[in-house]
Write a protein that binds this DNA or RNA. Sequence first.
DNA 1: CGATTTATTTATCGCTTGCTACAGAAAGGT
DNA 2: ACCTTTCTGTAGCAAGCGATAAATAAATCG
Lengths: 203, 203
Amino acid sequence: MAERGRPRTFDRGEALHRAMLLFWEKGYQGTSMSELTAAMGINAPSLYACFGSKEALYRETMALYDDYEGGGFGSALAAAPDARTAIETYLMGSAKLFTRPGKPAGCMVVLSVIQAAGVSEEAACELRDARAEMQRLLEARLQAEAAKGALPASCDISAIASFYITVQQGMSIRARDGATRAELEAVARGAMAAWTGLTRART
Amino acid sequence: MAERGRPRTFDRGEALHRAMLLFWEKGYQGTSMSELTAAMGINAPSLYACFGSKEALYRETMALYDDYEGGGFGSALAAAPDARTAIETYLMGSAKLFTRPGKPAGCMVVLSVIQAAGVSEEAACELRDARAEMQRLLEARLQAEAAKGALPASCDISAIASFYITVQQGMSIRARDGATRAELEAVARGAMAAWTGLTRART
DNA sequence: CGATTTATTTATCGCTTGCTACAGAAAGGT
DNA sequence: ACCTTTCTGTAGCAAGCGATAAATAAATCG
């Protein structure tokens, strides 16, 4: 079953990647079609034929980000020997991810809380779910630790997860504001200083 | 020295306040002139005559926010009996500020890291300075505590300030994402659990 | 009063936005 | 060869953007 018709003259994945970098940096509304077509090296009709619409393209770049840029945290959390190490790895990994040279600072999913303004309600829900998923992952890891008996049954797992998620999201903003990797790592270490207090059994 | 010419038919402060709420909620690019004029109850020429341009209006709303909405933290920090209480008050106050019913969620200055996209370089610097000012305030309060001898001389004051600023900025995002005041307060308490570890003398 | 000053209304301006109609080009199918 | 299918470039759509020109209205000044 060979492909019929005139073959595409550009690499779809490469074009998608370039679109992702633009959306990541400037948000949905902040990125115009002319910027997109210029960066992707194609004309508007090719973009629409290949991706459907600006919003569909945006959602696809978000999925690409989830898979290749923001990813790996789920397995990393599971692989860590204990929950404390898992969360520390999560924060230290975020510090590195948020400050990679040549890539926009901060996390595309986190910043989309604001950057996705103008997108449809449906897409906004998708993004919100992606954010909630991270909280769910953290809670699951903590729950597993509690099941092992390594965490007091009385401690508030969702509050712990919420705290570390908040720190990580704050790191996204700080990265956007110019914070270096070293600064973010110091923040991560600061957050880990709360571990003992957070996981102590309730009185 | 009475005023010459036809008097203005709208209240400048009231119009500015309404513009602030719009910019706060939707950001600079996300707010259009037609939305502004509709919300302010005036026509475009009145807006330009009174405020100069969309960007000038934006900067003026930011100043208004600084004075009346985000303000009070400087004096609150100084009034607290000790640095720990000062920071706890800062975070708990933020939790309240970020979730006031009838007002956009989160902090206008913090969210401007992203929401101010499209604004001039000069205005962006102003906003960045406003953010840096908060870090400076926290550091000054910690420094004062250290001068009293209530904080080990060896602890890293800028790292402590950086950590709590990051948490507060993270809370802004969480608020935008729908977090309740109670959730944010739990995060604030979580951050305070790091205090002992952060302020312990270095080994 | 008339002259001056300022604000308001109406009706745009030039430009960019996201998007698409159309004609031509390059492949496979038969 | 010819037809079909798919992609590409040009050219342009309606709508909205930020901003303004011109005419009118309402105040003070002399």
